[in-house]
Design a protein around this nucleic acid. Structure first.
Length: 501
RNA sequence: GGCCCUAUCGUCUAUCGGUUAGGACGUCAGGUUUUCAUCCUGAAAAGCGGGGUUCGACUCCCCGUAGGGCUACCA
């Protein structure tokens, strides 16, 4: 038997923003494909005409690009527009309607499926009755009993109808080996006569995904756990078509901290939200990868590049239980990634994400912004950031021309106003004496200031720091002076002395 | 209600019958420090319950319990 090439797919529905759970499903598919030197394709499942959101596909594919989970085949975005790659297209289901129609008709011809004319009202009543009788809610095959003459007549009259799969309740159990969960078994009697074609002429997910997965030669279906209960229906469909089903792997759900499927209202769940909040794509990927998977074998590695994930990923190591999405850990991880960035890269990311457009920075005086200045701020802030959107927030004095603060703040707790004033004068004198060039070097600046400080450094350093920042908390005064530069620093010192005199 | 899945610190997890049950985030304490953050050190913190199987169960099986998913002409 020839080794089947690995082909996996992400089959999102363009109904809105991209959920982080979808991103993780995409990631696992991608990692598996790369690991097996297979193909990762994206197919758009736009069969629900009511929930369709017009730019959803575009945004979704853009997010894939943002996260570096680029498809090899199918619908692909280059950031500007969407195109199709591959020979199994079209890769959007609304353009494959004739294919589904034909396959559904074939099943009807073979008696594997049948038209159903039941109204929503009758189906509702049926379900309610079954609920009361503690039975599994399923269709009662009412329309299967219709004579072929009647069916033909009603079809000819264009009566609204759907096509249902004809499931034999007497058939043997449906058993399949889930790559993550092992053997899963369902009884045929519990399986509903699933709707295959809707009355609007569009297929349901069940029909469309099975037909497409087969036609697109998908080898492994890796999808969320919420699909586990409908897998037997899909297997029945493969049997009805006399097709070989793919392997299935159902990955655990992402959960809210309070329990339940991760959802909006408990916080951000859209990939766009996280990117907008200043999470790095590689940090998000790393975090998502570890939510439900780990390299095992006693590994304690937490930080992974995409290449490392590809090399170590294994479906057998994917967890069975759901995983709570804990933003605290994401924050930590994001901070780790920010620390690893070069200053140039960090600046570039900030620019690309428009994080420097915030009023605090954009409205700062000319000499308190600009690339060189911002990079100095970043040199100081980098190790303190957990998200890109926090730039400048903790240290607004970097971007403010005039500082507002009470004079008492200049006095250190172990010192006096008189002492503080004399220390500040000493600082000013020293600052004046430092040549312009010294201000460009953090080390020499630090040496100069520290050298002037006595044994009780706070007496000297506290007033200096407050004079430069106006704040009770800030980075070290040397760093602040270095960022601000000579003239700004001198001006702030003079102002402080005036304030204390 | 029916069907299915799941179960180790608060959270993410290691362990694949024999361990002082390990790591990470978070929390707390201490250290460094002019302040905050970083950083360093340390601490507290877990096998849902009950039966089996076995010389021996966190680990295998069964029954409970709890949580989750599905139960649409949505995916």
């Amino acid at each position: 038997m020839p080794a089947l090439s690995v082909r996996v797919r992400l089959a999102p529905s363009p109904t809105g923003y991209m959920h982080v759970g979808t991103a993780r499903t995409a990631l696992y598919n991608y990692l598996f494909a790369k690991k097996e030197q297979g193909t990762f394709l994206v197919r758009i499942e736009d069969t629900d005409r009511e929930r369709l959101v017009h730019d959803a596909e575009e945004r979704l594919l853009k997010n894939l690009l943002d996260l570096h989970i680029q498809p090899d085949e199918g619908r692909v975005s280059n950031g500007k527009h969407v195109s199709e790659v591959g020979e199994y297209g079209p890769y959007i289901q609304s353009e494959r309607l004739a294919i589904y129609r034909k396959h559904a008709d074939d099943l009807v011809t073979e008696g594997q499926a049948y038209p159903c004319f039941c109204t929503a009202e009758r189906l509702d009543a049926l379900r309610k009755e079954q609920q009361v009788n503690k039975q599994a809610p399923k269709y009662d095959k009412h329309c299967l009993a219709l004579s072929s003459e009647e069916v033909g007549e009603r079809l000819k009259n264009k009566e609204s109808h759907v096509i249902r799969l004809n499931v034999d309740p007497q058939a043997e159990d449906i058993i399949f080996d889930d790559l993550i969960r092992g053997e899963v078994r369902f009884q045929s009697k519990d399986i509903d006569d699933q709707v295959l074609m809707k009355s609007d002429g569009f297929p349901t997910y069940h029909l469309a995904s099975v037909v497409d997965d087969h036609l697109m030669a998908i080898s492994h279906v890796i999808r969320g756990e919420e699909w586990l209960p409908s897998t037997p229906k899909h297997i029945l469909l493969y049997q009805a078509f006399d097709w070989q089903p793919p392997a299935f792997a159902h990955i655990p759900l992402l959960l809210n901290p309070g329990g339940g499927k991760l959802s909006k209202r408990q916080g951000d769940v859209a990939v766009d939200d996280f990117l907008r909040d200043g999470y790095l794509p590689e940090a998000l990927i790393n975090f998502l990868a570890l939510l439900g998977w780990n390299p095992g074998a006693g590994s304690t590695q937490e930080i992974f590049t995409m290449d490392e994930l590809v090399a170590q990923f294994d479906l057998a190591q994917v967890h069975k239980a759901g995983a709570v999405f804990d933003v605290k850990k994401l924050d930590w991880m994001n901070g780790e990634y920010i620390k690893k960035l070069s200053l140039d890269d960090l600046y570039m990311r900030l620019q690309q994400g428009s994080f420097l457009d915030k009023p605090l920075i954009a409205e700062a005086p000319q000499d308190l912004q600009g690339e060189i200045y911002i990079k100095k701020v970043l040199a100081v802030e980098q190790e303190r950031l957990t998200r890109l959107d926090q730039v400048g927030e903790e240290n607004p004095f970097f971007f403010t021309a005039t500082l507002e603060y009470p004079a008492e703040r200049l006095v250190w707790k172990k010192s006096s106003p008189e002492e503080s004033l004399s220390e500040l004068k000493r600082v000013l004198e020293l600052a004046h004496s430092l040549p312009e060039g010294e201000w460009e070097h953090l080390e020499s600046l630090e040496q100069a200031f520290l050298g002037a400080a006595g044994d009780d450094k706070g007496v000297f350093l506290w007033p200096l720091r407050v004079a430069l920042t106006g704040a009770e908390r800030s980075p070290s005064p040397f760093q602040v002076a270095w960022v601000l530069g000579r003239s700004n620093s001198l001006a702030r010192l003079e102002q402080a002395i005036k304030r204390l005199s």
